[in-house]
Design a protein around this nucleic acid. Sequence first.
DNA 1: CTGTTAGCGCTTTCAC
DNA 2: GTGAAAGCGCTAACAG
Lengths: 341, 341
Amino acid sequence: MPTIKDVAKEAGVSIATVSYVLNNKITFVSEDTRQIVLQAIQRVGYTPSVTARNLQANQTRLIGYAWHPIPNGQVNPVLDQFTYYMAHAAEEAGYHILTFTCSKENPVPIYEELIKRQRVDAFVLAGTNTDDPRIEFLIEKKFPFVCFGRSNPEWQFDYVDTDGESGMRQATEYLIRLGHRKIAFVAWPKTSLAGNYRLQGYMNAMRHAGLPVPPEYIIHVEQDQESGRTALRRWLQLPAEMQPTAIIAVTDLIAIGVMNEAKERGMVIGRDLSVIGYDNAPLVEYYSPALTTLEQQIPEMGHILIQMIEGMFQKQQRDLVQLVVPPRFIVRESCGVPRSE
Amino acid sequence: MPTIKDVAKEAGVSIATVSYVLNNKITFVSEDTRQIVLQAIQRVGYTPSVTARNLQANQTRLIGYAWHPIPNGQVNPVLDQFTYYMAHAAEEAGYHILTFTCSKENPVPIYEELIKRQRVDAFVLAGTNTDDPRIEFLIEKKFPFVCFGRSNPEWQFDYVDTDGESGMRQATEYLIRLGHRKIAFVAWPKTSLAGNYRLQGYMNAMRHAGLPVPPEYIIHVEQDQESGRTALRRWLQLPAEMQPTAIIAVTDLIAIGVMNEAKERGMVIGRDLSVIGYDNAPLVEYYSPALTTLEQQIPEMGHILIQMIEGMFQKQQRDLVQLVVPPRFIVRESCGVPRSE
DNA sequence: CTGTTAGCGCTTTCAC
DNA sequence: GTGAAAGCGCTAACAG
């Protein structure tokens, strides 16, 4: 690999001059020598070494992004998409994404290690939650980072997040418009912040419409298909007049569980039971019936996060960016008017 | 951030001595001073700068991995999983994955750029195909890389790949054992190498069992759900005695399409028609009926690829590694004995 | 305008 | 055993 010295020799100038040309220090160098240097660069096929530049600039132009373990063969389509779009945005800004793996139980040491070794300039955190130890750690370390997701409201940090509240509110209002009054919700465990925002959207819409939400209508479950089935089974044990005519699930995966259980019991989705999910996971549009759901605006959010990091390094005036992006409501075929009672 | 100088000052030794201790050059330094230095390192909280080390060693300890654009909201569960396990293996070997995005149409320039800027030490290529320009380019550049997937047999390069041939052979033999004789195959376009291996496995099993494969039984389509539907529709137009009783699809997504179309036409999967996919994509186990499929051994393959890269840098004796790993056959509920004719 | 030079943080000869 | 010093490839004062 040719170095700056080779170019200097080839052009018959000093390495400083080459450096000036490279860094567009136009006032420092005459147009004539500039051209000579440019041609020399061409001839020897020179490109500056990133490592050398980084050492001198005390940076890495790398953004760390943790890739979480995938439980039991399933994937998180949202994060996969997010990763791609974020990587893309990073490149446009002259950065690259360094992906690393990170355990859920004890995530902080890996972040600490990467900081100490000066492996990255900043982090993007995904899958944040209340009391997220990573956020706490990074705030305390004053290390640059942005989040895809929220955490404790009293913590001061930059984030972008999907607006689960508004999404689920929309979904609920849609069902109400169709005529449903008995709408139930499959929620995540109460410890899930994102889950609570989504639940809240449902609650708000119900309250606003003056519809009752008996405690039985909210079931908190884990993120798997089986949970959807269990939830529906419990609702079907309610007295007939209490049974929900529509169900909103905190994610598509759980919605699929609800639909599977219903279908096996001879119910027709869209007629006997309406179902809505969240995420627009791959394949759910091909499920039968196609699932009505909410789609997070992943490309935009990835882009914004990188812009935020850029902003951090440009100006020192660190103004807090806290952004919440409403998801897109996608109406497909899993909802209909409730059966006349 | 403390540097090696700070440690030297703290310990009252030269930076060289600190460096010896760091690099375990045990013979160079007495146990006494070693302890002193170690304690000084502790006190100042020092960790060597990766960038500085890299500059001096002329390396990056970064492995480049391209993240391909995701067509139209769908994801590739296989590659997502692969990425995770590869990142994990890389870390154990003291490397990190640098993810970058790459256009299908003109991929080479990005690779060239990363090489010239000396951003990475090696590449992992996924989604390879015949005449893959990236492979050609990297071979010619003599830049280290390994592939997840095969390419032209005459090209000398290291790869690991799923054994589509053996996988589909197994699947076909299974259907034959169940009693099927009229088995059709939804293939990828003929230009797809991976697709052709899978097709070949089906062909081999059929031939070996002495079963006919009329040309109508093989339909080449794109990777989407609709293609599965189209394929089935065409088969249903065949004269009754020609209609296949079982269908193998080159991927789960296409298999889902076949099943959806069949179900809409009132057929019962597993009774009227048996279906097998490939990949064990997320959610297909929750489809009804649960899809019988083949699962690639992703974690292993990711691990092996990193080991191969390590091997490249350890010894110079570059022995070619070309490995093909059979997938795991997962029997679920989408196949049954053919209806008596 | 251009070149000399001193680092950036580290490793590694080569004297002592 | 230990330390001084050169150098990895680059940028940026500072002279001239």
